[in-house]
């Protein structure tokens, strides 16, 4: 099993570019509706809540909790073959219910619990992208 597949890097488009520009500067910004204040993630052309096209980006706290987690055992994702087992978390940001971001935690999920608080950290990857990552805190 080759362990050198390139890891997938984001392919930004006009809708998502501000998100990656912000993370490169270590700021977490989520698309937010100017009309109703709803956070849309992944970003949308029209607000999920009110259908307004008037959408910008707003910085969020980066505070949140573990919504759920799963331990990945399969080597079926390029660039992650040599990382299994690792844990995929969904983090719910404190700004809004079900405002969920994916995160990666090494290992088989030991010590991770649903609703546990998380902290944000920054992971630089290929091509100058910086991923917003989260780890559970006690």
């Amino acid at each position: 099993m080759p362990d050198t597949s390139p890891r997938p890097v984001p392919a930004p488009d006009p809708l998502t570019q501000p998100f990656w520009d912000a993370t490169a500067a270590h700021r977490l910004e989520i698309q937010r509706c100017a009309a109703c204040g709803y956070y849309n993630h992944p970003p949308k052309r029209l607000c999920d809540q009110c259908t307004s096209p008037d959408l910008g980006y707003a910085e969020v706290s980066g505070r949140g909790k573990v919504y759920s987690f799963t331990v990945m055992r399969q080597t079926s994702i390029a660039g992650f073959e040599d990382k299994v087992p690792y844990t995929t978390m969904l983090v719910e940001l404190e700004e809004q219910p079900q405002l969920l971001l994916a995160a990666t935690v090494p290992g088989a999920g030991d010590g991770i619990a649903i609703n546990q608080p998380v902290e944000l950290w920054w992971e630089p990857i290929e091509d100058g992208f910086v991923l917003p990552q989260f780890r559970p805190i006690a």
Binding site: S5, P6, R7, P8, V9, P10, A11, P12, D13, T16, H41, P42, M72, Q74, S76, I77, A78, G79, F80, K83, Y86, T88, L101, A102, A103, T104, I125, F129, L131, Q133
Partner: peptide
């Protein structure tokens, strides 16, 4: 259903780079 691409576009750009694609 394996993920073999090194570019993640659309909504997958928020999941696949984190090892979440299946």
């Amino acid at each position: 259903g394996a993920w073999r691409s090194n570019r993640a576009g659309g909504d997958t750009q928020f999941t696949a780079p984190f090892g979440a694609a299946n």
